[in-house]
C-alpha cells in the first residue's frame, strides 16, 4: 500500500525481499545499506537470532530523491526464509507494493526455491494480492557458486510471468541495485497507471 502524503509531499513504498532460507535476502539489503549515501539511508534494523538468521525481519528505509516534486522513500523489508517462520512471513507482506524474489542458484536449492515461490503466492493471496500482477522481480543470486544451476534451467523452473530476471552475487553487490531498480520501476509505473 503506497502512502502518499500531500501535506509533506512524500510517497512511501514498501518492498519485500522473499526467498528460501540462506538465499541472500539480508545480504542484498546489507549491501544497499553499505553503499547508500549515509544522509539518504536510515538505520538498518535486523531482528535476527544469535547466529544471524533472520527471526522476524530486516528493515531499511531509503530516501531516493524526488519525482514530480514528491520525496520518494522506499522501505525495504526481508522475511525470515526458514520454513517454520511462515506466520511471520505472511505478516511482513501486509501492505507491500512490490516483491523481490531472491533465488539461490545452487543446484541442491532448486526445490527450496520452487517451494518458496509457492509459499509466496499463498501468502500474497492471504494478504489480498495476486502474485501474477504485483510488481515482482526475480533475482538469481549466488551466480559465483561452483554448483550454480544454468540460467536457462532456473528460468524454466522459476520464471512464470515474464518478470525481470537479474543475475546477482549479492555478497559482492553484483545485480543488487539493478534488482531494486527493476522493482522500483514497476511500482512507480503502477502509480502512473492507477
Amino acid at each position: 500500500m503506497t502512502f502518499i502524503n500531500y501535506a509533506s509531499r512524500e510517497i512511501n513504498c514498501k518492498i519485500v525481499y522473499y526467498g528460501p532460507g540462506l538465499c541472500g535476502k539480508t545480504t542484498n539489503i546489507q549491501w544497499i545499506h553499505e553503499q547508500a549515501n549515509p544522509e539518504k539511508r536510515g538505520k538498518l534494523v535486523s531482528l535476527a537470532t544469535e547466529t544471524d538468521r533472520t527471526l522476524f525481519f530486516d528493515f531499511l528505509p531509503l530516501d531516493m530523491g524526488t519525482v514530480k516534486g514528491f520525496k520518494v522513500r522506499f522501505h525495504l523489508y526481508t522475511v525470515p526464509g526458514q520454513v517454520f517462520y511462515d506466520a511471520s512471513r505472511k505478516l511482513i507482506l501486509r501492505g507491500c507494493d512490490g516483491v523481490i524474489f531472491v533465488a539461490d542458484s545452487q543446484r541442491p536449492r532448486m526445490e527450496a526455491n520452487i517451494e518458496a515461490i509457492a509459499n509466496l503466492a499463498t501468502n500474497l493471496k492471504d494478504n489480498g494480492f495476486d502474485i501474477r500482477t504485483i510488481p515482482y522481480v526475480l533475482q538469481l543470486n549466488k551466480r559465483d557458486m561452483p554448483t550454480a544451476e544454468k540460467v536457462d534451467e532456473m528460468e524454466r523452473l522459476l520464471r512464470f510471468r515474464n518478470e525481470p530476471m537479474i543475475e546477482g552475487v549479492a555478497s559482492q553487490g553484483v545485480g543488487v541495485i539493478e534488482t531494486l531498480k527493476a522493482c522500483a520501476r514497476q511500482i512507480l509505473m503502477e502509480l502512473q497507471r492507477s
Binding site: 531516493m64 519525482v67 514530480k68 516534486g69 522500483a184 509505473m189 502512473q192
Partner: peptide
C-alpha cells in the same frame, strides 16, 4: 488526478 500520471523512465533513472 495522480501527480504520477506523467512519470517517465528518465524520472526513475534519476532516482538511482
Amino acid at each position: 488526478e495522480s501527480p504520477f500520471s506523467e512519470i517517465t523512465d528518465d524520472d526513475i533513472d534519476k532516482l538511482f
